[in-house]
């Protein structure tokens, strides 16, 4: 079992505390989305996990060991931190050959990951000539080079075209399905919602949430039913009779809070109300996230009320 374990981790740069007593575990077999606004401490946490920065206090381990004590670490942990890490004057293929050599990864694996990430055709071009999307794919190729059980990616969908976004989503899901531990940071909510099973949310270096994504959304956003009718009066009457509270929106639809589509559908058909549209309005990760950060801001800023 190869988890990433972060325990009471703190990192200070001068007087600024980038990571503040952080404790969470990233487990294998699922994609963990690492969320938070810019400057929340996501990248710092990743660097601490990889042993690149030294923690002020606390520990970060991979499979129970500090990263720096891993023998041939690329075979255990693959990371994408910065798409610009590859030297512009080297070819993409040489960039990977250099990394492979240091961890005794067979050279054949270089061509495999180039194929896997779809950049085999540009592998012999200098990295300088790559688009951001190609660099991003090269960084992911480097992360997958050692066939690692743990994959850590910092904003992997940055600069990818729509096709690339779909590709990375499927790649992440596949890596998790293979039983790997996958930690992916992002500040894009819809993007994260499309691949994450679990969420770790940071705000100003502190842990705000660590729970399954579905649970996170359901806890913060009430599901609603969206309904449109040609007979608003009848609709309102029926809903009131059944104890539902409906709100009319400008563009002609009604939303019913604390309700399920199945119930509302039956009630309406029973009462003979003409229905033009009926759908369930599931909470989105974005709504849940905004709700959380709003609560956090309120908590952090003392209110002026007396």
């Amino acid at each position: 079992m190869t988890s990433i374990d972060v325990k009471d981790l703190t990192k200070e740069y001068g007087t600024r505390r980038a990571v503040d007593h952080l404790t969470f575990t990233v487990r294998p077999g699922r994609v963990t989305g690492f969320l938070g606004p810019n400057g929340a401490g996501k990248s710092t946490t990743m660097r601490l996990v990889l042993g690149l920065d030294r923690p002020t206090s606390g520990t970060a381990t991979v499979g129970g060991r500090a990263y720096a004590t891993l023998h041939e670490p690329l075979r255990h942990v693959g990371a994408l931190l910065d798409a610009h890490a590859a030297h512009g004057s080297r070819t993409g293929r040489d960039h990977l050959r250099v990394l492979a050599a240091s961890n005794r990864i067979p050279p054949g694996r270089v061509d495999e990951v180039l194929e896997l990430t779809g950049i085999a055709s540009v592998a012999r071009r200098r990295v300088r000539t790559y688009s951001l999307g190609m660099r991003q794919r090269l960084g992911i190729a480097a992360a997958l080079l050692g066939d690692p059980a743990v994959v850590v990616l910092d904003e992997p969908s940055n600069g990818l075209d729509p096709e690339g976004i779909i590709w990375i989503r499927e790649l992440l899901r596949r890596l998790a399905a293979e039983g790997r531990t996958v930690l992916v940071s992002s500040h894009l909510m819809n993007e994260t919602a499309s691949f994450a099973d679990h969420l770790v949310v940071l705000g100003r270096g502190r842990l705000l949430a660590d729970m399954p994504m579905r649970e996170f959304i359901d806890a913060r956003v009430q599901p609603r039913v969206r309904i449109r009718t040609s007979d608003a009066t009848a609709l309102k009457a029926v809903l009131t009779r059944h104890g539902h509270d409906a709100v009319e929106h400008d563009d002609g639809y009604w939303s019913v809070r604390h309700a399920r589509v199945d119930d509302i559908g039956r009630v309406m058909s029973g009462a003979g109300v003409p229905i033009l549209e009926l759908s369930s309005d599931e909470g989105t990760l974005e709504q849940a996230y905004l709700d959380l950060t709003a609560a956090e801001t309120e908590f952090a800023t003392p209110t002026q009320e007396t």
Binding site: L52, Y67, P73, V77, A79, L81, D82, A85, A86, H87
Partner: peptide, 9 residues
């Protein structure tokens, strides 16, 4: 471009 991070990883 902070390539050193990759090297030290």
């Amino acid at each position: 471009g902070n390539g050193i991070r990759l090297s030290l990883a």
